[in-house]
């Protein structure tokens, strides 16, 4: 495993921890999109089907279990926890996330490396992950005041995606036959979605101002 991949996994892990920290200690999910969290739970559930069939490493299995466990517990917190659910901004979080799922299913059925149930599900999870952040970004645009933890959560997610691209570039030059168009293109699309957010994040950081996105 190269340094970019490890750093990518760690920023991904930290992003989830920051979010859980916010929800668990402050008992608030203000500014967090339930739609995006539900999509992530679906992404992990469909991607990690191989957890029982293919053993890669202890690291791999542990991380998969952490991402599955954390994503479903975040959804549980926002939907069911009696204090946390009160802070959920239902009126603002209106993105029709179900409409993202069907195109991803169709695309996965049409464009995949192998037409098997596991492979199509895996490909579906890549396509869905690419667009899963959209409800969160839309909610962010509507929320006038973005708190620090929410800003850091999205920044860490974007950092994770960027580091994975560096990881692919590194692997392309160091490993033989390492060409994965589906992973790369969906990963690139996903990272580009963060470009706008990054711009305003660094801008507010540089000027030492509170993060605010233009309406």
């Amino acid at each position: 495993m190269n340094i970019f991949r490890l750093a990518g996994d760690m920023t991904h892990l930290f992003s989830v921890l920051v979010l859980l920290l916010k929800i668990h200690t402050i008992k608030s999910c203000a500014g967090i999109s339930l739609k995006t969290q539900e999509l992530y739970a679906l992404v992990f559930a469909t991607r990690y089907l191989d957890i029982f069939t293919d053993y890669i490493s202890l690291y791999n299995t542990c991380m998969k279990l952490i991402f599955l466990g954390s994503s479903f517990s975040i959804v549980w917190y926002i939907r069911r926890h009696k204090i946390v659910r009160r802070s959920y901004d239902k009126e603002q979080d209106t993105f029709r996330h179900h409409f993202l799922i069907l195109p991803c299913i169709i695309l996965a059925l049409l464009i995949n490396e192998k037409f098997t149930v596991k492979e199509v599900m895996w490909t579906f999870s890549l396509y869905l992950e690419a667009v899963a952040i959209l409800p969160q970004l839309v909610l962010l645009q509507r929320t006038r005041n973005i708190d620090n933890l929410t800003g850091q959560y999205i920044f860490l997610l974007g950092a994770y995606r960027s580091l994975y691209i560096l990881n692919w570039i590194y692997r392309y030059f160091t490993e033989q036959h390492y060409v994965h168009w589906i992973t790369w293109i969906s990963g690139l699309v996903q990272t580009l979605l963060y470009a706008d957010f990054f711009y305003y994040y660094f801008h507010s950081w540089k000027n030492n101002e509170k993060l605010q996105l233009p309406a």
Binding site: H12, I56, N60, E113, K114, N167, H180
Partner: peptide, 10 residues
């Protein structure tokens, strides 16, 4: 080879 390298990623 049915285990493509990308599958070792998360």
């Amino acid at each position: 080879d049915n285990q493509s390298p990308a599958k070792d990623e998360l």
